[in-house]
Design a binder for these strands. Sequence first.
DNA 1: GTCTTTACCTGTATGC
DNA 2: TGCATACAGGTAAAGA
Length: 281
Amino acid sequence: LPELPEVETVRRGLEEATRGRAVLAVPWLDHRMVRGPIGADAIRAGMAGQTVDRVERHGKFLVWRFRTGAGLLLHLGMSGRLTAGVQPWAAWPPHTHLVVAMSDGQEVRLRDPRRFGRIGWVQPGDHPWPNLGPDALARNFSARCFQETLGGRQAPIKSLLLDQGVVAGIGNIYADEALFRARIHPLTAGGRLTTADVRRLHRAIRQVLRAAIEHRGTTFRSFEDAAGREGGFLPWLRVYGRTGQACQRCGGAIQSRMIGGRTTHYCERCQPAPSAEASSR
DNA sequence: GTCTTTACCTGTATGC
DNA sequence: TGCATACAGGTAAAGA
């Protein structure tokens, strides 16, 4: 489940593998993955001969940026795996939707069985993520601006953390982990959080995301980095996927329930439910 | 404008 | 053993 740490891990791998290299050709691009006004054939033609400048990330979106300023927008969806390297096998694995041949003999491949990912073309100067809030690890995502965004919002903080227009990069795993670390109940209305709550949550978000990046992300089902390695953060999860297990802090049982259509994991003792008094204030 | 629900998609797990 | 069903969730769009 690629969230910010997993996408950042892929970003670093793709940049390291391809920076300064040229695209020889795009042997395969599945048109079903392509979004936006530029079609698959135009993207394939546009990429040929381009030299890679860098790989940018905002939230869970990547732009494989070329020296002309144009770029390839990539989103890994839920099951997307982007790998780069000299691939020993001749046949592409199942569910391969993008194959890019580089001039140094490497191949960049995108596999995505569920096809929730997407591919698009970014023109020079284009702002490819107009609807996203600040990146969760960016300098401009401050506790103060976070509190302003949450002000007056009635939705559960869990749902707001998943809203990429509020803050970009957090998915179901790290939303639950950050709320646990900040000791905030996931049903608490965003606008009811105190200044101290928001500061704790802001710090918890950044700490858990940075720690996960250090471990190259979490492999829960299928994530792998650009070199095909699994992430190492799974043992560090405190609540996600631990329903019924003992809370590492208080020993109580980890609960799970649906909030905003998403399974949410939390500790009822460490994350006390918002009180009636607080809710009526 | 805000919030909730649904569709998209298929591998994996579960139940009969 | 084999089949049917439920479940997982990032994003966007529709509905309330």
